[in-house]
Design a protein around this nucleic acid. Sequence first.
DNA 1: TTGAAAGCGATACCAG
DNA 2: CTGGTATCGCTTTCAA
Lengths: 353, 353
Amino acid sequence: MTASVHDGGDDEGAAGTAAPSGPFVRRASPTRDDVARLAGVSPAVVSYVLNDGPKPVSAGKRERVEEAVAALGYRPDARARSLRLGRTHAIGLIVPDAANPFFAELAQAIERAAAPHGLAVLMGTTADDPAKEAKYLEDLAERRVDGLILISSRSDQDLSPATTLAVPVVVMDRTPDDLPISTIAFDNVGGAAIATRHLLEHGHRTVHFVAGPREVAVSGRRIDGWRAALEEAGLPTPRPTHTPFTYEGGRTAARQLFARRHPPAAVVVSSDVQAIGVVSASAELGLRIPDDLALVSVDGTRAAAFANPGITTLSQPIEQMATQAVTTILARGGDPVHVVICGALTIRRSCGC
Amino acid sequence: MTASVHDGGDDEGAAGTAAPSGPFVRRASPTRDDVARLAGVSPAVVSYVLNDGPKPVSAGKRERVEEAVAALGYRPDARARSLRLGRTHAIGLIVPDAANPFFAELAQAIERAAAPHGLAVLMGTTADDPAKEAKYLEDLAERRVDGLILISSRSDQDLSPATTLAVPVVVMDRTPDDLPISTIAFDNVGGAAIATRHLLEHGHRTVHFVAGPREVAVSGRRIDGWRAALEEAGLPTPRPTHTPFTYEGGRTAARQLFARRHPPAAVVVSSDVQAIGVVSASAELGLRIPDDLALVSVDGTRAAAFANPGITTLSQPIEQMATQAVTTILARGGDPVHVVICGALTIRRSCGC
DNA sequence: TTGAAAGCGATACCAG
DNA sequence: CTGGTATCGCTTTCAA
């Protein structure tokens, strides 16, 4: 891999026709006062025109202002505006891993839900690192975002800093019920139970579980659901395999599982990324899915749909969750709200149907 | 799928011990003046303490200020700070599709590269819609981001608005050489050629191409590379199959390809997402990769590594590109720079090796 | 219909 | 050392 650098100055330096004020001169942004001066009106009038109020402006001056705005390429400074108006028209979004298809789809859904309200999204990823999470929390609070959507991996206890933030916060993907913060959570317990039962209905008597890291809250919830389904069927629960929420994590888990004396014939995987890793590793080991290993996962991302074979997955209603989150943020000031959303099984080939 | 809403007020209203000043009272953020008042010093001194300068402060007052800051949970307002200081410590990032693994990985790499410089990332996705792109461009310019990384799908012509932005812009993933904007581009032509040649070396005499949408610039570049490799081998070039840069696009393309009288035995796919779609669709059609269809794609995402079978792909050095982009942004003011970065083939099973 | 001026919350100069 | 105060760019009230 090589990189070649051409300095554009050579080619363009002589011509200099494109840019209005000479080549590559980055002018400081014009201010409203500049516009006023050029239009021969007072700064206030410029505001009246741009905001279409609160005072009327004569047609003549209005036109002069509009011309000046165009001539200068004037754009009002959102910071100054926000300082005066009190709102930033931005929300913060903190996710553990933007490259995980689930969070990627969720983030995009949130952006789509936010855009109609004129809200931009400031995103940060934490890699499950509490220090990074705290840093982003502080940074976004200082930027005075209008709201904050936090997908935290921390334990309920550690979440309290988010309480004191003077910014409306909604925590997704988990439920610290005891904190005065709004939550919108997926029914992880119920979801994992449904996934597990589906495998049981196929006649499997032993269903293993590939879990996330121990520290991550959702991971525990999904284990609970799996265990509940097994117990309700009067079956023993094997030890879950803990592994990161990544492709690699899934691969590692699969290798461990198949290295055993009695390799599993059915497994619930706690996320789509991991499931894709399991599928990939299984293929490399010469095992066929679903024949040698039946598999169901949780998330419902598009990536699971296009795995080979397609992965049966308990779909989280991502759009709905995103909309709920944004709605909750916009309902600032009200008492905290706790929403629990359930999923539905999307059946594909990996489970043996 | 159902959603149940519990109003947290019921459970928590009575207790109200957690939050310092009563349950759910969202105080407005304290200002520096509040801190000064509480500490019994002037506002200026608060600044001196917080910024550790420019003037020295006596130990006593310093401590009083620090106590007041802690007591109030004071966080300086980044907007006001930025207005005064001239920098926002944020960069904008405009991508076509954050759920596309390539852009997801690139975005995350950019965030990682930006964080050490204290830069937050404001991300927007455009879905290849020029109107959305323009909207984000304006919005980010108004927010006065310190720089803007644009992954545009527009033709070179349409990019000129980005020139007048008064914000340092770097365009990635394509190269409008004629505009006074920095670019950091992947060698799409060379890359596609390498991918194609690899298939030719395997003895294939007909190599098809699954391209992106006609309007998207990179798509054309990659077609050029593929065509060049074929011509250089004295082979004819079939008509490329145009399809969106998505999983679904890949599936559609595969179905079209295999519906032909003479289905292809070798294909270069212009992105990893599409390639995963092709692999998935092929499996559904009962075709084996690489035996029935040898496949090479371009991008080098982790998703391609974990496809089944693993996809041979021309890897873009994502980290390096991200670092370059951030570095270029930080070198604000200099003449535009054009960087071209080449990739390397990552060989997996899909090509028949 | 227009404009002067008071903030919004911070920084840093200039005087004490 | 400490503290007024002008300033960043904008909105909006109040007075003309």
